[in-house]
Structures are given as C-alpha cells and as structure tokens.
Design a protein around this nucleic acid. Structure first.
Lengths: 315, 315
DNA sequence: ATAACCATGCACAATAGATGCATGATTGAT
DNA sequence: ATCAATCATGCATCTATTGTGCATGGTTAT
C-alpha cells in the first residue's frame, strides 16, 4: 500500500529529511543509501528550480523555501491519501501492501493479532509489521514505510495531537502498575499510592525514553521527586532488577509478568494514577480507507476485549 | 516548468485519457507512444490495486472507479500547482521550462511578444510555444505540456468557465468585422448590420470549428439564418474567396488584412455585434506563480495596447 | 592533531521506462 | 461477407534514470 507513491518520492524524501535533519538518518529511514538521498534532494531542487537546502557546518539544513515547501506539502499528501482512500472505497481494491508499526507490548498484544486477522481475511494483502518506538513510527509514517502505527501517546509529546500530518484514534488507556519485590513490606497490599513509594529506589528507563517521560510526569503530578536507582531498557530486565531487590518500578498493565519470580504487581490509587494512552496513528486523509477502517475496527475490538477482561475499577 | 511533475506522471496520463478517450490520442497529446501509455495505465492500476479501465469494443473506457479517481485528482493537481506557485513566490526560482499554447492570431499577436519578452527578462527560462486550437490547448494544459494558453472563449463552450481544472483571465474582447468585396454595393459604407447582410452568400469555417460556433451564435442573436456558400480554414483563404467575389465573411479585428486586394472591412453595428473573447487559461492553482503572474501582466499590457489603438466606439 | 561524522561525487550496476513492430480483436465499408 | 481501418497490447530491445559502494573533502569534537 505504501509502496510507489503518487507523489514524487523525492518530495517524500525531503519531508523525511525535514523531520530528522541529516541525510544519513533520512537514508536509514527511507531505506535508501545516503548517496541516493543526496542525489534525490539535488534533483528535486533542479527540477523545481528552487534552492531548498544550504550547507550548515558538516551537514545541510533546509532553507526558508525548503521549510515552506515541506509545510505546504502536508496538505498535498493528505489530499492524496484522502483521494486514494475514497477511490478504494468506491472500487474495492484487490491487492497491495500494508505496513504496520508499533512498540513492543503494543505490537505484541495489538499488532500481531491484527496482522494475523488481515492475513486471513485478505490473503492478497502483503502485510508487514515493523517494531519501532513511537517517534520512529511517526517517521516511518512520513516516509511511507508504514501506513498505520500503534503508539504510546505521551503528555509531553513532541508530536502534537493536532499534527497536520497525522490522524490519531485512541484505542485504550493502559494503567501503570507498581512492581515491588515479594519480600517488600507493602507486598501484601492490594493497592498503593505513589506517595507511599516516594522514598523507594526506582528502576526506570533511560532519560529521554518513552517511559521515562511518563514516569516523571506521574510523580510531578503528586509533587514528589523519586530517586532513580537503576535504569533498564527491557521490561524483562526491569522485572529482574525488582526481583533481585534492587528497587521498585512501574509496569504497564499490558506487559505480562509471567516469568517473574519474587515480584508482586500492585494497583496504584490516589491522584497520581499514571496511565499510558495507546493510540493508532495514520497519515492524515488515509483514515477513510477501507483497509484502515477495517484495521482500526479490529484494533478497537481487541482493545475492548482487553479492557473488559479487567476488574471494573480499573476502567 | 511543466516537465517532471511532482504528481505521478501516470496519473496525468490517466487524466489526459479521461479527456480524449483513446490510448492513441492520449499518446499523441502526452508525447508518449501508445505502448507507453498502455503500460503506464496498466502500471497505475497495479500500483493502486484498482481497476480503472475496462475493455469496450476495440477501445478501452474508464470504470466508475477510474472516473472517480480522475474527478478527485482535480483538487490534488490544483493543490500542487498552488503549492508550487507559493514556493516559487517564496524563494525565487532560478530556471525551468515554460510552455505556452495559443491559437493562430492570438498566438501571433499576443503569445509571440510574450515569449520574446520572457526570453529577454528571464534568459534562463526555456520558453516553448505551441500553436494549437482552444480545445487542444486545454488538453495540453491537462497533459502538462503547456502552462499557459491564450484561447478564444466561446458561448457554447464545452469547457465551462468554472471548470475545476482551470482558471481563466479575460484579456481582450475582439470584435468581428465583416469583409466584403470592394465592388459590393455596401463597400462604401462605414458600418453595416448583420441583418443587411442576411441574404449574402457567407464564407465561414467548417461546422464544428472554433469560429463556426461564433458565426452561428451571432446570427441566431439577430434571428437570421444565413446561407453558407463556402468554407475556408485559413483566414487568408477566406479573404481570397471574398476578394474573388464568392461571398462575404466575418474576420476578427485582430486578424490582419494586409495582403487583401479587392476586399473591404466594415464594422458591424446593431444588436448582433459579434465578438470573440480572448482569455488566458492556466491550470487551477498555478495562477499565483510569479511566472504566470508576470506573463499575465505582459499579456494584459499587450491587450490594452491593442484596445487603445482602436477608435473609442469599438471598445 | 587526530578521529569521527557528514555530505557528495564518481564509476558501475540494476532497474524502470520508452520505442517500434507485430498481433489480436472489433467495427465499419465495399 | 470480406477487407480494410482502427485500437489496444504484448514483446524484444534499447535508453535513461536511479541506486549502490567506495572514496573524498570539509567540519566538529576529543
């Protein structure tokens, strides 16, 4: 589906460049080589007769004209997506490719079933799933490598909800639980508040990561500055750290705890009740596409099933 | 300028096909070979996963989906033209190609000076002029072979003024004069009415031509059905026919009479005062482009100069 | 000063895309 | 009813575009 765009691929490349700022990163995202990206951007300028890039130190940056073109192209892309969606609605579309992107747990719990369902209902459809963090998912959407992304929306989101390029649909609010060692004084409790855990040594992800932002946001809400004792990238690692008694951590409800030993999961109560919002994002205009609509439906059903399997008080 | 479009050239080809209905004609208009057009359309369908064409007799015709896509693409094209125009306004554009199209006298009197002026003010600009009749000019605009056309607007215009694809600017209303043999009883008059010439044998262009429509429109306005004695394609031929005493004819004020012998030109008065309206047409959205703006300005100046060189009563 | 980084140019390779002719299918004319 | 004309398409071929990999030159950080 995303392959072979009706808009000049060089413009797409320019748009990706506008997002990541370097030729190398653009190459990585688009799947081209750096030389190809360089050549494409040069060609684009030649064809339009406009200077879009300027040398800037050891890199290049967009000129005012370049920024203008990129900004204006949002509407153009959306217009095309919208047209394609409507055309696909009119005459049913036979075959194409469909790229999905998502983040770890989301990918596992939502994207995998979606891909499986699509594969069976639409055998001719070439479904591809890419695991990527939210920021990269947006990049991949712009680069047209994927057509739908399931991502974790954050309060301090660099990609505003009303971004001209995307349309987002809330799938599910996933609460964060606390995981503590089984021999911890609070381990026998059903629920805790963040204040009760303020003095604990915390295990979190590296600063700048998706969940670190959620972590700090949760604690600033209750006015506490927790002590970060350790950092882990994978949930498994974090759980293991907690199991080893190194500290406590936050774990999304969706993340399974099955391999954990000596670790207890507790619901959080009180005003600082952190949740991560899981949303589906598509390129603006493409939301009317029957393929997207079907996918969103499947995702929504899956999300509702997850919600309904939980105790009421968690909703 | 028109070369190398940002919108997939195959979509442009489809749009041209939608206008002319056959692969062969599309090939002629776009400058491709028939095989290339065929292959492009096939590719387009493959890429979109949509069936856009159906076999119809010995030709092909658009499916409902195809018509839908073409209709919807108007907005997309306009959006791009608009964006390009704005970008060119923002950062001045260095070099490109610029295609002009126009019809005989219009081309000679308006387009040639325009091309000459542009050539001197913008040496880097590659200006190309194509002589073509109005209908073909619109086709060439859609095919992106030309960017601006000077054409004769007609009452019974197949291309409505509010066509989604184009934007038109009135340049000049060019009145039609009567040419009669020098030895004709009315030859000494300054002006005549159409009624006075109702019984004359008329020389006009072939039915279906640009000027035949103007001709009939003028006479239906005064409620007279003239007798068409002869048909001529070129003005020169028509003038020669009149000079040979075969009949009378209509000649636009802009068309020169310099080579004529035994032919007199008379102003037409009365309610049936036929004029041809000369307008500039561009693809919708592109009108904001500095190049287009400059061109329209030059054309307007030229048109005003022509008007001001005429007696007041002709305006 | 050296190393790392970034973009670009060039030679080469792969691929897409156009051409021209031949073919098959359909319509209209003799 | 046959023949010619028209139209689209497939195929072999060629060309031009486009991408890759490596080398180069300029720029920043250590």
């Amino acid at each position: 589906m995303h392959n072979r765009c009706m808009i000049d691929p060089r413009l797409i490349t320019l748009r990706v460049f506008a997002r990541c700022g370097t030729v190398g990163a653009t190459a990585e995202l688009t799947g081209y080589s750096p030389s190809a990206v360089s050549a494409q951007l040069r060609e684009l300028q030649r064809v339009l007769g406009l200077q879009l890039l300027t040398k800037d130190g050891r890199g290049v940056r967009l000129t005012a004209t370049g920024r203008f073109l990129v900004a204006g192209s949002d509407a153009l892309i959306a217009e095309w997506e919208s047209l394609r969606a409507a055309a696909m609605e009119a005459g049913d579309q036979v075959q194409s490719r469909f790229g999905l992107g998502g983040f770890s747990t989301a990918a596992a719990q939502l994207l995998a079933p979606l891909a499986a369902t699509l594969r069976s209902t639409r055998p001719l459809l070439e479904v591809q799933v890419l695991e990527a963090n939210p920021a990269r998912c947006f990049d991949l959407l712009v680069a047209e490598r994927i057509d739908l992304a399931v991502i974790v929306a954050m309060q301090s989101d660099t990609y505003a909800e009303d971004d001209q390029r995307f349309e987002q649909t809330v799938l599910l609010d996933d609460p964060l639980d606390v995981i503590i060692p089984a021999d911890h004084p609070l381990a026998s409790r059903e629920t805790v508040t963040l204040e009760e855990l303020a003095s604990e040594p915390w295990i979190t992800e590296a600063a700048g990561s998706t969940y670190h932002a959620l972590f700090t946001a949760a604690f600033t809400a209750v006015g506490v500055t927790p002590r970060i004792a350790h950092e882990a990238v994978e949930w498994e690692t974090q759980i293991a750290f907690v199991g080893a008694g190194l500290g406590v951590g936050l774990l999304p409800r969706l993340a399974p705890l099955h391999t954990a030993e000596n670790v207890v999961r507790l619901r959080i109560t009180g005003k600082g009740k952190p949740t991560r919002r899981i949303v589906a994002a598509v390129r603006r205009g493409s939301i009317a596409s029957p393929l997207i609509q079907e996918s969103l439906g499947i995702l929504q059903i899956r999300a509702n099933r997850i919600l309904s399997s939980r105790p009421e008080d968690d909703l």
